[in-house]
């Protein structure tokens, strides 16, 4: 297939959410779904390198008054609008206090120019197994609010990924917001390993929440990045972490066995499976040490 030229791509730019949803519904009925444009930090890379598979897009930049920014609900839940950029959230000191793992991810997703343009919702919908913000959101039990012309529904991020680069969103639906319930800051842990801190795609990453009570871990969320076809929770590892009081040799081995039951990372252009597994294991141990109350 020859590359699609930029001049051959059609884009609509609605200025109201209702109009956008009507366009998505109409395109879906015609069997020619529209792909949404938000920060374009992924789509334009595809286009510039001739990898574009779509010719028809719907640009959301006219919907900033309805879908931009973020807000705090009375119970401390963070609501992130579909067009909220990384830099917009990073400008809010409360976000750093409440969700340090999310602001760390946002600050490492790319350099200044990418932070100013990229969106959390775009990162979720792009469905890359090497995403940075999406795994932090998954570890925080975030939910995805989807809307279509005729319906609205909420899908837990834990049920959002259905396969490699595939999501639960129907073609006539749009992510309108993400919601992140409150979580103690002390239990949050985020690390990404790439060739350098900024502007590097993640070779292996961890987003974890380890809740401690009376010297032992009582609850665990561990999300793996670049370790499988999608970002995913490592449930055997989460179970193995419950009851852990610290890191000794036997504990380390047990955690590694549990990890290997969950995650069998592959060799690819960015890294090797064995390296990924070993680094991930060490980051699990680091998470235990650093969140220990």
């Amino acid at each position: 297939m020859s590359a699609i030229a930029h001049s051959a791509v059609a884009v609509t730019r609605p200025t109201a959410l209702s109009a956008a949803l009507a366009q998505l519904a109409d395109a879906h009925v015609r069997g020619a779904p529209l792909r949404a444009l938000a920060g374009c930090t992924d789509v334009l890379v595809e286009a510039n390198h001739g990898g574009l598979k779509h010719r028809s897009f719907i640009d959301l930049s006219g919907l900033k008054s309805e879908l931009g920014g973020h807000s705090w609900l009375p119970d401390g839940t963070l609501r992130i609008g579909a067009l909220c950029t990384y830099s917009a959230l990073l400008a809010d000191p409360r976000a750093h206090e409440a969700f340090p793992m999310l602001t760390q991810a946002a600050g490492l997703v790319g350099a200044t120019q990418i932070q100013a343009r990229g969106t959390f919702a775009g990162n979720v919908e792009n469905a890359s197994p090497a995403a940075d913000a999406a795994p932090a959101l998954l570890a925080l039990d975030a939910v995805v609010h989807l809307q279509s012309a005729s319906s609205a529904r909420t899908v837990p991020l834990s049920q959002y990924y259905t396969g490699y680069r595939a999501t639960a969103r129907r073609p006539d639906e749009l992510i309108v917001a993400l919601e992140v319930p409150p979580a103690p800051a002390g239990e949050q842990f985020f690390r990404k390993v790439g060739t350098r801190a900024f502007q590097a795609i993640t070779k292996v990453g961890i987003s974890a929440r380890l809740r401690w009570h009376e010297g032992a871990i009582v609850d665990a969320r561990v999300v793996a990045t670049s370790m499988a076809a999608t970002i995913c929770r490592a449930t055997h590892l989460e179970n193995a972490l419950r009851g852990v009081r610290g890191v000794d040799g036997a504990t380390s081995q047990a955690l590694r066995r549990a990890q290997d039951a969950d995650l069998r990372p592959i060799d690819d252009v960015r890294s090797q499976g064995d390296y990924r597994a070993e680094v991930f294991h060490r980051m699990v141990l680091q998470a235990v040490r650093e969140t220990r109350a």
Partner: peptide
């Protein structure tokens, strides 16, 4: 763009409206 540095290679011109 609107006071923030961005990469012009990643911006479809329609988003400049």
């Amino acid at each position: 763009i609107d006071g923030e540095p961005i990469n012009a290679c990643l911006v479809p011109v329609i988003q400049c409206e």
